[in-house]
């Protein structure tokens, strides 16, 4: 089995017991204090120049996503076009970071995005439930990478995690990472809504990073509770502490439920005041979202013109 944990943490992954001891030895999280901190950062007032900066940054961090059973090549091409030029009325608008699709749409997306810097991300590993045998999951990943995916968004086996089989989760992440090789960056999705507690989310974050995650990601967008400021704050604290301990920097991606400019800016404030400017870049922070983009565009138009915009002045996809 490949091991991706940095030398400093190699002992922690030596056995299931060792891994449990390590993960359960991480500092606990008091939910009320965590939520209060997230809420307090949510009261930051981001105005004028700071708002303009934040809106463009947020646009550039979006993994513009379509993950529907009804996805078609036409839908994916439309999304790709929007990713490259989010606002047809204003070509100074930055492109999004990536489009995010199912593996069978990777080739279509890749083709549509040719010549742009926009990446193709693909969910894999039997997304969103992750309930398939490992060889099937790995084949899913292999397919997507072969089709040209720049990034793979995998889901962890929440069942194994909740049953306490941490080594199994770890080894699966490591195996997926091996499939990605140096072709694709790996995002590890925890489905935080199913892990339920913040302590679990912190443990999963470390497990993901030790397994080789390039990004850790809150959720699939397919369950009731997706990205929230507090659960994203837990991820941010984890990448901050992980870098301090190992020297390795890992990105963060909240996904699902972030729909307004106001929300997006709150997340950027969390990034700014928890991990700082080293993460204020789409190489290290992403938003997994779809409807968020139009709200950012309308707010951007408002800042530029002084008028409130409306839905007819941004594109539907």
């Amino acid at each position: 089995m490949p091991t991706n944990a940095p030398a400093a943490l190699a002992d922690a992954t030596a056995s299931d017991a060792a891994l449990r001891r390590f993960l359960h030895g991480l500092p606990g999280i008091d939910p009320v204090g965590l939520e209060a901190r997230a809420a307090s950062l949510g009261t930051r007032s981001i105005k004028t120049t700071a708002k303009a900066y934040a809106i463009d940054l947020a646009i550039s961090m979006i993994d513009l996503t379509t993950l529907e059973g009804a996805d078609t090549p036409g839908k994916v091409r439309a999304l790709a076009a929007k990713a490259v030029h989010p606002d047809p009325l204003d070509r100074t608008t930055p492109a999004t970071a990536a489009v995010c699709v199912y593996p069978d749409m990777v080739a279509t997306a890749k083709e549509a995005l040719k010549g742009s810097d926009v990446k193709v991300a693909s969910v894999a590993t039997a997304f969103p439930a992750g309930r398939a045998a490992l060889p099937v999951k790995l084949a899913d990943v292999r397919d997507a990478v072969a089709a040209g995916a720049d990034e793979i968004d995998m889901v962890i086996d929440r069942g194994a995690f909740l049953a306490g089989h941490y080594l199994k989760v770890y080894e699966e992440i490591a195996a997926v990472k091996a499939e990605c090789g140096d072709k694709a960056r790996l995002k590890v999705i925890f489905e935080t809504g199913e892990l339920s507690t913040y302590d679990n989310i912190r443990r999963a974050s470390w497990l993901g990073m030790m397994g080789g995650a390039d990004f850790i990601k809150t959720s699939t967008g397919k369950v009731a509770v997706n990205a929230t400021p507090p659960n994203t704050l837990v991820l941010l604290e984890a990448v901050r502490d992980y870098r301090a301990q190992t020297g390795v920097q890992v990105g963060v991606k909240p996904a699902g439920g972030i729909r307004s400019t106001k929300d997006a800016i709150k997340f950027l404030v969390l990034v700014n005041e928890t991990v700082g400017e080293d993460w204020l870049d789409n190489h290290w922070f992403r938003f997994g979202a779809s409807s968020l983009l139009n709200d950012l565009l309308m707010q951007r138009q408002k800042l530029a013109t002084g008028r409130y915009s409306g839905p007819d002045y941004v594109t539907v996809d």
Partner: peptide, 9 residues
């Protein structure tokens, strides 16, 4: 709360 459920924005 018992878990990290839906904290509002």
């Amino acid at each position: 709360s018992l878990g990290a459920s839906g904290s509002a924005y």
